[in-house]
Simulated scan of single mutants.
Amino acid sequence: MAFKYFLVVCLSYYLVVSNVNCERGDCATVTTGFGPMKYMKVGTGSTILVLLDGTLGDIVADNFERIYNDFDHSKYTIYQVDLPGYGGSRTLVAPKKYSNRDFPPEFFERDADAVIQTMIELNVEKYSVLGWGYGGTVAMFVASRAPDNVVKCVSWAAKPFSSKTLVAKEKQRLKVPVKDWLPEVLGKQTLSHSIENIEEAFKGLTEAWESLLNSDNASPKQCLSKLSTPTLILYGKNDPYADSNLIQEIRNYAKNTAVILFVTKKHALHKLDKFAPAVKDFLDSNDYKMGGDVVEIDCTDQDEREEEEKQKKREEQKKLEEQQAGSSK
């Protein structure tokens, strides 16, 4: 009886979580040697794109709303894939309790191979892979490990290399309980993940960064040295989370690259008005110039406009709170 209850609760919770935000397209899960891999398919176009989110990002978080709005669904077919241990690509271990994300020694390779196998299971032979943040690094690993399948690669705000500064920042973050993180830092991670999931993921990732540093970044260096697929690298000049100085380090190993540096303080570069046109230009071009100088695109006008809008909302909220306080006296 208890086992039947466990199955019913697990199935109900899975259906609730797996159907959130799937109105954009078709959601399903495929079984791989790396566990269940959830994906969402949007569009019917002939150009196939595989989209990868960042740390603890998933389909439910809906971080890529702007991409889905900016890309023509009759021209592109987008497969958004939850990376192993995130979102729907997890295993239920108890009622309403999913397994925690792990970071084996070759964690980037494992995640890339899981994405590659997912596309094999879906019978998709040729595709371009796009990724943000952690997903941007995995995208480059996918392209490096499946050069016969990946047509082009787009990676933005990625951190493929570890450093003493990065490890120190991650350790400092762990000193603050997840429940006390600011909303803009925590983002939408709690939609699919428990506080325990988030804590364990960042703890594991911090240990992984430290291990990578101790190996002198051997894994990403090897990956990027083998990256022959045309790859567009994008960074924000004033991104607080991904240092644009990584550009030169990446290009020391990956030669077939083009680089765009957005003059912005955003980390979520895909929310920039000028992001989609730049990426589509690269994806659609047969003679895109690779290996040239870094191209700067000024987006400070959007930053300023959005900051003004935020300030206006803060002032309106403050005024509303003052009115409510006055009426309660």
Results as ranks from 00 to 15, higher is better:
65 E>L: 10
152 K>S: 05
156 W>Q: 11
182 L>P: 00
123 N>V: 07
159 K>E: 09
118 T>A: 03
262 F>Q: 15
123 N>M: 09
92 L>C: 13
14 Y>R: 12
41 K>W: 04
153 C>D: 06
219 S>W: 06
154 V>F: 06
201 A>Y: 01
128 S>C: 07
193 H>M: 03
53 D>A: 15
51 L>R: 00
281 D>H: 08
102 D>N: 05
202 F>R: 06
73 H>C: 02
304 E>K: 15
311 Q>V: 09
95 P>R: 04
219 S>M: 14
263 V>I: 14
282 F>T: 05
157 A>N: 05
29 T>V: 14
100 N>T: 09
319 K>H: 13
43 G>W: 02
119 M>C: 09
308 E>Y: 10
147 P>Q: 14
3 F>R: 08
242 A>C: 14
131 G>F: 09
144 S>G: 11
115 V>M: 10
289 K>P: 06
97 K>A: 08
68 Y>N: 02
242 A>M: 05
111 D>K: 09
279 V>N: 04
161 F>C: 07
204 G>P: 03
276 A>C: 11
309 E>C: 04
314 R>D: 02
195 I>D: 02
308 E>T: 13
303 D>V: 14
308 E>W: 09
153 C>T: 05
15 L>V: 10
69 N>F: 11
77 T>L: 11
10 C>Q: 03
247 I>Q: 09
30 V>Q: 04
85 G>P: 05
297 I>M: 08
288 Y>C: 01
138 V>D: 03
58 D>P: 01
38 K>I: 00
22 C>R: 06
221 K>E: 14
122 L>R: 14
277 P>K: 11
239 D>R: 13
328 S>D: 10
272 L>C: 12
176 V>E: 14
303 D>N: 14
259 V>H: 04
77 T>G: 11
